[in-house]
Design a protein around this nucleic acid. Sequence first.
DNA 1: ATCGATATTGACACAAAGTATCACTAGTGA
DNA 2: TCACTAGTGATACTTTGTGTCAATATCGAT
Lengths: 152, 152
Amino acid sequence: MQQTQNPHTTHLTIEEIEHRLRQHGYRLTGPRTVVVDAVLRHQRPFTAEQLVAELSSGDDSIGRATVYRTLEVLASMDVLTRIVSPDGHPSYISGAPGHRHHLLCQVCGITVTFTACPMSELISTLADETKFQINEHTLEVFGVCPSCQAHQ
Amino acid sequence: MQQTQNPHTTHLTIEEIEHRLRQHGYRLTGPRTVVVDAVLRHQRPFTAEQLVAELSSGDDSIGRATVYRTLEVLASMDVLTRIVSPDGHPSYISGAPGHRHHLLCQVCGITVTFTACPMSELISTLADETKFQINEHTLEVFGVCPSCQAHQ
DNA sequence: ATCGATATTGACACAAAGTATCACTAGTGA
DNA sequence: TCACTAGTGATACTTTGTGTCAATATCGAT
Ligand SMILES: [Mn+2]
Ligand SMILES: [Mn+2]
Ligand SMILES: [Zn+2]
Ligand SMILES: [Zn+2]
């Protein structure tokens, strides 16, 4: 295994994200900035609906469609990772450059990101044996973090 | 890698499934039998809604809730595997005893089941480094099967 | 074979999660 | 500043799944 790291170290700054948006030809709009700000405030995985709820009231209220669209854009630019847990509920984790996987606490949601991927060997074997053209894989690990183990 | 195998080899017979239902204390009802029959006819992954559509018309029509409940029961008894693809849509594959993963064709849906799991080493390293209690993992591989590669 | 407790069913209403439309607004480059 | 067009959000809609509950079917016991 190569490395485990704290999710904080993968966070991009607002400036970096805005730069990426421009580079990809997206406009820098008010609502988009509000969504990005909100995303960066999250240290843990969050669902689209959580973000909708946070941003649907208040002075600059953001529409549901805009939240979903912005999450899609950010995920496509590797600002966010979309993770689907075994129960089928997708959540988002901010910061995701490169090939990463996650270890999630099923109690509190805290996340450890890791770059070690044990798949490459398996993938060549699979490709050889099945003649499939292999495009992608999902790999996520679930458990209970030390803190949640301690608190019973 | 230990083995790849054709999904057909993992199919259980109706009798075996009914036996399992009894063993787990479930009653052997008409609707349940109809759902099991339908499930066994599927050689490829199918969604709950597909099954609902198949069984909602005809002489012995099954209610939506019953289909969902039966799928849940069958999955809990390892008669079915519930797989969640990266787009978040769950589908079911019949036959799933033991620890298995899948290679799915993104075009036609055909599936190869494999028992090789490259996770055990990674999991002990992760547990050591993070002190997480690790409970489960998702690992699915996606690509294009040889036949779909040929047909352009 | 009949009975009674209860597991199961399915119509229905409801909820959650996400998408299509489209008139309007606001960024952006010129 | 202007014109072009990407982006927004209210609304309606779809899909997928869940909760309720009176009616029914199963099954072990008699
Ligand atoms: Mn990987
Ligand atoms: Mn595994
Ligand atoms: Zn925790
Ligand atoms: Zn195929």
